[in-house]
Design a protein around this nucleic acid. Structure first.
Lengths: 162, 162
DNA sequence: TTCTAGTAGCTAGATTTTCTAGCTACCCGA
DNA sequence: TCGGGTAGCTAGAAAATCTAGCTACTAGAA
């Protein structure tokens, strides 16, 4: 996400870090295209790509915001017609947030130019290159997932420090 | 950034999109590790990795926030000791924002676990694989830069629409 | 079964961040 | 040199998040 330390590093690592930095800006670009806030766009993104259903609290956790803010966020998304509140199948405390068809289509349309270009880049790879690249991307994704997961919890002020 | 359309797509594109989504979360993770807000972390990231000096307005432009918000942001960063306001060498209207040594070191320390892991992943590539991967990453970066650059301008309310 | 600790979601009110509107100082080309 | 355009700032309004604390519900222990 930032310039590598002054010690020289491989071109690949440098290119990857540059990509990660630009990727960070992509979320804001998507939000502007959708005409909504960055957090709202990130929320829809999470809801679309999550494998299991999310409620407001868990969604807020993934976004790094508090339960109260998540309730507010979901209110905004529901009001805008992007999301529905549905009951959780097994746990009556919970909600299962659903992205509406319309919101899904809007996100897809907003992303399409990038997805098309990405597919073009991918299509230039030979099968062997594609296999190598895929494995590399997955390894890097795992590293970043670990980094995100091990970030210090967003704890209440005054909590004990290790 | 989101799940691909229902039509099957190559594994590589899928892996890349997953990476981009996780990369979006990385910025928040860095901010939490630094104990500052997401925008503040993104600002320092931009200042560190920009090749030419930035002022508050240009920085705000890259972050997608307004001139007034950028002034406020820089106030915060200066107050926290992360950034200095220095005069622009040629243009007396402008400022050249400088990241302090301390902030630079803090960012590097916060990123280190990820950078180390990334370097490990990169080091497993053969020189040929590294070359292919580097080219791929650069091409994708270019695509995303274009996507970010062509996002609709964050225009004032009531501006004429095309 | 009943009790108890823990979680999901919400409300109310305070705080923080960003926004709009508009100002001055400065740069640069006609 | 003059007029349009830009950088940065201030003031006050609007929006997003936060803390604190509540209720309803789940799940495991007594």
């Amino acid at each position: 996400m930032a310039r590598p330390p002054s010690t020289p590093t491989s071109e690949t690592a440098r290119a990857l870090r540059e990509l990660l930095r630009v990727a960070g800006d992509t979320r804001g670009a998507l939000a502007r295209r959708l005409g909504i806030g960055t957090t709202d766009a990130a929320a829809i993104d999470h809801l679309i790509s999550s494998s299991d259903p999310l409620g407001p609290v868990e969604l807020g956790h993934r976004l790094g915001i508090r339960s109260a803010s998540a309730t507010n966020l979901v209110d905004r998304l529901v009001q805008a017609g992007h999301v529905r509140r549905a009951p959780h199948p097994h746990d009556r405390r919970r909600l299962a947030l659903e992205v509406t068809e319309q919101a899904y289509d809007e996100v897809l349309a907003a992303l399409r130019p990038m997805l098309v270009s990405v597919d073009q880049v991918v299509s230039r790879l030979t099968p062997e290159e594609a296999a190598t690249t895929t494995e590399f991307l997955r390894a890097v994704t795992e590293v970043m997932r670990e980094y995100v997961a091990t970030a210090p919890a967003d704890r209440p002020a005054g909590s004990p420090q290790p």
